Amino acid sequence: MKTSDQTGSSETITSDEMRALEQAAIASGRVTGLELMERAGKGVVEAIFEEWPELVKDKRRAVVLCGPGNNGGDGFVVARLLEKAGWGVETFLYGDAKKLPPDARVNYELWLGRGGVSKIEVCYSYRWASHPVVVDALFGIGMNRPLPDELRNILMATLNCRRVAVDIPSYVSSDTGDLMCPWPHYTGQNQLTVTFHRPKAGHVMADGAQVCGKVVVKDIGL
């Protein structure tokens, strides 16, 4: 696994520590949750263009898989910024939009002003070849249980695409690096993982070190 750390430190932190930092920053009034989400989405798009600079001029199509929490909110920011850059973007939501956290719901509605959102079930028969960039914004560091089989099958179908994970691939534990479902170890190829503030332990431990691909750390002002 290759790591590109733009914060000046390679020290890892846990998911609880990251959430505490975000909550403290918001509670202090220095930043809002929406601002952090916007910065995270911007960091993901920057990392995509830095990793694959040919995509800056060669406009492509992307699929963004959004989950039921704030990681999904990051995904809707990514979708909006890619669409603004001239890309064709399709988004899929796992879960009920009415139950999204407030900041994620705001970005869901902002995206609805630009494009549609399909239920994740539509992905089962999806033709991924025409969408070579797939963004996994399903769970991020919040995942602490086995990945549902239907989501594993969808993610497995994208292995020939350029894959971008927001924070950490949804099949990897952020704190231990353990796989949250059966997953082949060679699939770090064409995998870009964009995380925030500091690397997480799961990026460098156990199976996470093999499947996260290149890990880029973006500063979001914490």
Rank of each mutant, 00 (worst) to 15 (best):
M1T: 04
M1L: 02
M1V: 01
M1F: 01
K2M: 10
K2G: 09
T3D: 03
Q6W: 11
T7N: 10
G8M: 13
S9W: 02
T12A: 09
I13L: 05
S15L: 11
A20E: 10
Q23F: 02
I26T: 02
V31H: 10
G33P: 12
E38V: 01
E38T: 05
R39Q: 13
K42E: 05
K42M: 04
K42N: 07
V44K: 07
E46Y: 03
A47N: 07
E51F: 11
E54D: 11
L55R: 07
L55I: 02
V56C: 06
D58C: 01
R61W: 15
A62R: 14
V64N: 06
L65P: 05
G67S: 08
G67A: 12
G67L: 05
P68Y: 10
G69C: 07
N71R: 09
G72N: 06
V77K: 09
V78L: 08
V78K: 11
L82C: 10
E83D: 10
E83K: 13
W87P: 09
W87G: 05
G88P: 15
E90W: 08
Y94R: 07
K99V: 05
L100M: 11
A104R: 11
A104H: 13
A104D: 13
N107K: 12
E109N: 08
L112E: 15
G113T: 08
G113A: 15
G113F: 04
R114L: 13
G115R: 14
G116K: 15
V117W: 12
V117P: 11
K119N: 06
I120D: 01
E121K: 12
V122D: 08
V122W: 06
Y124P: 00
S125L: 13
R127K: 11
S130H: 09
S130M: 14
D136F: 11
G140M: 10
G142P: 07
M143H: 12
L147M: 15
R152Y: 00
N153F: 04
N153T: 00
A157S: 14
T158L: 01
T158P: 08
L159T: 00
N160S: 08
S170A: 06
Y171C: 03
Y171A: 00
S173G: 03
T176A: 00
D178E: 12
L179S: 01
M180G: 05
C181R: 03
W183Q: 05
H185M: 11
G188W: 15
G188P: 15
Q191V: 00
L192H: 04
V194C: 10
V194H: 06
V194F: 07
T195A: 02
T195Q: 09
H197E: 15
A201K: 06
A201L: 14
V204T: 01
A206Q: 12
A206K: 14
V211H: 01
G213I: 07
G213D: 02
V215N: 12
V215E: 07
V215C: 01
V216N: 00
K218H: 05
D219N: 11
